[in-house]
Amino acid sequence: MKKLKFALLLLCLLAYSSSYAQDDLLSLLGEEEETTEYAKASFKTTRVINGHSLENVAGGVMDMKISHRFGMLNSGAYNLFGLDQASIRIGLDYGINDRLMVGFGRSSHNKVYDGFAKLKLLRQSSGKRTMPISLVVLSGVYLKTIEWQQPERDNYFSSRLEYTHQLIVGRKFSEGTTIQFMPTVVHRNLVPTTEDTHDVILIGAAARQKLTKRVAINAEYYYALPDQLSPDRKNSLAIGFDIETGGHVFQLHFTNSTSMIEPGFMTETIGDWGKGDIHFGFNVSRVFTIRKPKKLEG
C-alpha cells in the first residue's frame, strides 16, 4: 500500500514537472517539416569565363554582359601587351522563369550574332527532396555576318550558321567549391578545311573556388576529341577571377581564345599558352530586375 502511494506521488510529480519545467517551448510543436533546399550561387554569374556555368539568371531578371578580350600578351610593348586591340561581345540575357533563360549577343570578332536558350533540367537540392547534381541543357545558334572571303564563288546563307548543344552537369560541393563537366557538340555548316569535321565533339571541365565572400577563382578547359579540327587549332583554356560588388560581377581573366561564343572559342582557338599567346580579358555583368516576383504580393 505504501509503495503504491509512493508510486502515485512520484507519477504526479513527474507529470507535473514534465508539463511545467518545459524550457524549450518550441519543442512542443514537434519535429519540423523538412523542406527542399536548392543549392544556389554555385557560380557568381551565368558564365564561368567564356562558356556557360550551372547558373541561370532568376526569373524576371535581365543581365547585361559586356565582354572584352584584348590582344595577345606576347605582342609586346609596342601594342601595350595586347591592350591596343580588343574584341568585344555585348549581350543581353533574360530569365523567363527560374529554370529557363534566353539570351542574345553580338561579337565584333567575325561579326557574329548569337542567340541561346538554357534550361535547368535538374537542380541540386537537399532536405525533403535530395538531388546530388544540377543538370543544365544549352542550345545556341550563331550567325556570322562578316563579308565573304571569296565573294566571287557561290556563297549560301546557310554557310553562315553554326550551332552548339551542350549539357552542363555539376555540383556545388561546399559553400566555396563547385565543379562541372560540359559534354558539347558544335555543328558548323561550313568548315575551313577538308580536315575539319562538321560536327565537333568536345568535353569541357570547369571549377570555381571562392577565396573570400565576394571573390572567386575560376578555371575552364575545353578538350576537343582528336581528328576533328585542323592541326593548328588548340584547346581553349581560361583562368580568371570573379569579383562581385552589389549588382555587378566583374570577371578578369587570361585565355588563349579570342572569341567569346561557343563555336568560336571551341573550334577557332589558335593561341598557344606555352608561347604566350594569351589574351587578357574581362566580362562585366550588371543585373536589372524587370519583373518582380509574384511571391511578395499580399
Binding site: D24, L26, T35, A41, T289, K292
Partner: peptide, 29 residues
C-alpha cells in the same frame, strides 16, 4: 514558428533565414 505560454509569459520564436523573400533575386542571394 512561435510558441507563447500565457501562464508564465514566456515566448519563443524561430525563423529560417533562407525563407526570407526579397524583391530582387540578387538581394536574396
Amino acid at each position: 514558428t512561435s510558441v507563447i505560454d500565457t501562464k508564465t509569459g514566456k515566448m519563443e520564436f524561430a525563423v529560417l533565414m533562407k525563407a526570407f523573400q526579397f524583391e530582387k533575386a540578387l538581394m536574396e542571394e
